[in-house]
């Protein structure tokens, strides 16, 4: 951000007689109107959800939705399930994707286009279509498909386009080959090289990927709902069926969670470039 921002600000043209572009130091009214309209559109739903969550019927307002929300039997269970699935997806990504990508960079750059192609596949295969396929192919074994842990498989792919991109950027700024050769010349094995040399250098890419995984998995509804597992988003939806004010409280809570994770992403990513997950 810092580089690009100065790029925009620095080369201001000299004020010419013809056009006052660049001489203008403040935003024009039109631009302020656009920003104001944007602010209204984005803030209103949040404020309304907030008011709604305090509504107790008639003209009474209070905390009862929040009290009920925390006391609801499914709240903690579903929240912990979603957090656990996020952690498991993260572990799967660290075991399957991270080493594979490091080794492709190191030993088989020819496979890069294949990996790039695979990372785009989840975009082409919509979540519902992937579930349709998974349920057709895998009708067992029970230990695989009957526990919520099964969700980790589709979640891995749901996050793949974003984790891939984050790691690709991280690896692109590293000279993996030189680092590895240095490690090996010092007598390090693969384990030591990966854990002590490469991963520490990938820290910001990894943290970004992890936070993005958490955001995506916690908000995920499609897979869990169709496969009948009660994660946090499914819990919010079920609550909304009969207790709309509690659902509003939960939605605000979910927004805050997203906010926390995305702030983490923004702070850790050096360029400040925002990344986007996908579970719409």
């Amino acid at each position: 951000m810092s580089v690009t921002a100065s790029e925009v600000e620095a080369p201001l043209p000299k004020p010419s007689a013809r056009k006052a572009y660049g001489a203008r130091r403040t935003l024009s009214t039109g631009n302020w109107i656009i920003i104001a309209l944007g602010a209204i559109f984005f803030i209103t739903p949040l404020v309304m959800t907030g008011i709604f969550s305090f509504w107790e019927g008639g003209s009474k307002y209070g905390w009862s939705a929040y009290v009920l929300m925390f006391e609801a039997p499914g709240f903690w269970a579903s929240l912990f399930l979603s957090l656990r699935l996020g952690v498991e997806t993260m572990i799967l990504t660290f075991v399957l994707l991270v080493p594979a990508m490091i080794f492709v960079h190191l030993k088989a750059p020819k496979l890069k286009p294949l990996f790039e192609f695979i990372s785009n596949l989840p975009f082409v295969i919509p979540a519902v279509a992937l579930i349709a396929g998974l349920t057709t192919v895998y009708t067992g074994p029970a230990w695989l498909i009957s526990t919520p842990n099964y969700l980790v498989i589709p979640y891995f792919f749901l996050c793949l386009p974003y984790t891939f991109r984050s790691l690709e950027v991280g690896l692109g700024t590293l000279d993996v080959r030189t680092l590895t050769e240095a490690g090996q010349s010092l007598g390090g094995g693969w384990g030591q090289i990966i854990f002590l040399v490469i991963l520490p250098n990938l820290r910001s890419a990894l943290v970004g990927a992890v936070l993005l995984i958490m955001t995506t998995v916690i908000g995920e509804f499609t897979f869990a709902s169709v496969l009948l597992f009660h994660n946090f988003a499914v819990f919010i939806n079920d609550t909304g069926q009969n207790a709309i004010t509690e659902a509003a409280a939960l939605s605000l809570f979910a927004f805050l969670l997203t906010w926390v994770f995305m702030l983490g992403v923004l702070i850790t990513s050096r360029r400040g470039a925002a990344t986007v997950g996908g579970a719409h």
Binding site: F42, T44, P45, L46, M48, T49, I51, F52, S53, T215, T216, G219, E220, F221, A233, V234, I236, N237, G240, I244, A247, A248, L250, S251, L252, A254, F255, T258, W259, F261, M262, L263, V265, L266, A274, T275, V276, G277, A279, H280
Partner: peptide, 18 residues
């Protein structure tokens, strides 16, 4: 960054409230 990732069920309820 936050709003682009704020979707699905909570977003739906936010707009239902609005």
């Amino acid at each position: 960054a936050v709003a682009a990732n704020f979707a699905g069920v909570p977003l739906a309820f936010a707009f239902i409230s609005t």
